[in-house]
Structures are given as C-alpha cells and as structure tokens.
Design a protein around this nucleic acid. Structure first.
Lengths: 158, 158
DNA sequence: TATAAAATATAGCAAAAGCTAACTAATTAC
DNA sequence: GTAATTAGTTAGCTTTTGCTATATTTTATA
C-alpha cells in the first residue's frame, strides 16, 4: 500500500502519538515548522533591534553582531534584507531604526518571548535554562498555546 | 559605551526579561538555537524513518517525501547525507534502514516528541495544534525542561 | 513477457545565512 | 587637526536545503 492512499484509511480511534497522522496533516506539520524557520531569524533581529533601542538608546550593528554571536558582515547583509522588507530604516554607517512595521513586529515578538519565558519560569525551570529554551521555542508556539501559557502564568502568580 | 563592555556591568538585580542579558550569555542563547537548527532536520528525518518502519513495516523515500511535504529529489539528497553520517543504511532503489546510531537517535527523538506532545495536551491544547507545536518545539526544549514536563504529565494524568 | 507506471537517482539552479579579507567611513585620542 | 582605532560595507566563498528536469531502475499490468 502506498502511503498516499493511507489518507483514506479510517481513523484508528487511537488518540495517542502511537499512530502516524494522516499524510496531509503530517506534511502540514513540517511545512509549518519550515515556514517558522524562514521568519524566525528576521523576527529575532527585529526584536533585538527593538530591545537595544529600548534599553540602550540605540541599535548599532556591532552590538547586534556581538549579541547575536555572528560577524559584522553577517549583520550588514541581514540589515539590507530587513531594509528591503520594510522593517528597518537605516543610513550607511549610522545606527538602526525600526519602521512602523518593524516596531509592531518587535512588540509582538517581545510579547511572545515574555510569555514563553515567564511560563517556563512559572513551571519551575531555572532562569538561565528558561532563557535559552524560550529563545528557541518562541517561534514555534501557536496563538492557542500562547493563550494557555498566559493563563497558566496568571494562575500561578504569587 | 560599547556593548562589549556591558558584560562587566553589575547585574541590575532585575530578574524579569526587562533587562538585556549580558552579551556573552545573550550570544550563547542564539548560538544554541542555531546549533539546534543544524541537527533538527536530521533528527526529523531519522525519527520519521523510524516511525515508518515501526508502523508500516518499511520506510520508502516516496513516503518520506509525502509526509515531509518535500520532493523526492530532496529526500534522495538527504538520505545520502544520513548515510554519510552513519545514521542510515541503504542500497539504491531500496527502502531505508537505520543503523544502530540512527535507531538510538530515532528513539531519543520520539521520546522527546512524545513528552512535549503529551505535555501540551495535558496543558489543555487541542490535539491538532499540539501536534504542530510539538513538531517545532521538540528540538528547543532542554533536558531540564523536558524532565519538568514529564513530571507535569504524571501529576496531571487522570 | 513486454510495456507502462511508479519509485529513485542525479545534475544543476537558487536562496539563505554564515564566513574571511580588503576597503571605507566615523570617532577618539593625542 | 591629524593619526589611530573602531565601526560598517562589500565582494566573493561555502554549506544547506529546497526546487525542476531528466535519466534510470523497479514493479505492476495487459
């Protein structure tokens, strides 16, 4: 039997992970992850630029590079992309600014990030671990799950 | 002030996300995420091959392609990589097998995946959403957090 | 069993994100 | 105010993971 045809197979009634999901749904899961990966880096940069402006007054390429753990050349290239995407406004050799769109992306990312981080802490994860996990998980948490995390935080607040 | 120097700055005493983490730690967070991305796809393939063998008796490239939502050529190329990495044993035009190493990676991934999925469900996330989120989150959850999730599942089992 | 269909492989292209090296601009220090 | 240092840019390379198109092999069918 071909795997394509399995989509027509009757549901097994088994709700655990033990059964493979129908092909179409399975593929959609991986597609969602791939899509997230495409926007992930963009969001991380925009979020970081926002944070730098917020906390340090300005966002310099050098600081982006050292905080991201990459070379300046990499940042330069990325900033050009962010410009093209209309997320960042910049002039050569000057520090960076977010456009309206960039600003709202930054706020959105920061909010998600905060919720995930607080959720992990509320769950009992150590701060340094929580920060690392949050950075990775942030982009893979659906709105539905995020709302549930939010509720969890409120219920478990001291 | 240069951002590099900020590493020597005294901690603000503010444990919320409101403060930027020290530069070195911040960079390590992003590095961890980048590293996860490198192994992520590999693990997904190996895990899926394991699942296919388990549930369908064999793993064919076509089925990998349809379930991953990519083209067969992409799978072919990936399988060559998995071979080089010593995770998969395969002969041209034949179905795929996992090596010892591949098998243990598959088991490990499946275990992680299961815990994350069950955790999300225990938290109250709908099944279809939980599956999507788990697929993305799986690779970004530390052992520490995983253990906590495990405990949470046990405590909240009916 | 010969042929059509399905599965797999290979070649070659593209985009993304990293790198180094070499160059230019801005800032700081003297 | 010039020289040295720091910051930013650009060009060109590499790896990874997609893709299409084409060739080859295996399997199924008439």
């Amino acid at each position: 039997m071909n795997d394509y045809e399995q989509d027509n197979a009757p549901p097994t009634g088994d709700s655990s992970r033990d059964a493979l999901p129908p092909v179409t749904q399975h593929a959609r899961q991986y597609e969602t992850v791939r899509n997230a990966h495409e926007t992930e880096l963009i969001e991380d940069y925009v979020e970081l630029i926002g944070d730098l402006i917020r906390h340090r007054g300005e966002a310099r390429a050098t600081d982006l590079a050292s905080r991201m753990g990459v070379r300046q050349a990499t940042v330069s290239k990325m900033v050009r992309r962010l410009n093209e995407l209309g997320l960042v406004k910049s002039q050569p050799y000057r520090s960076l600014f977010l456009t309206e769109a960039g600003q709202s992306m930054a706020e959105n990312s920061r909010a998600r990030h905060d919720i995930v981080l607080q959720f992990l802490r509320a769950l009992g994860v150590r701060d340094s671990t929580a920060r690392i996990d949050a950075e990775g998980m942030e982009h893979h948490v659906s709105d539905e799950t995020l709302a549930i995390m939010q509720r969890f935080i409120e219920e478990n607040a001291k």
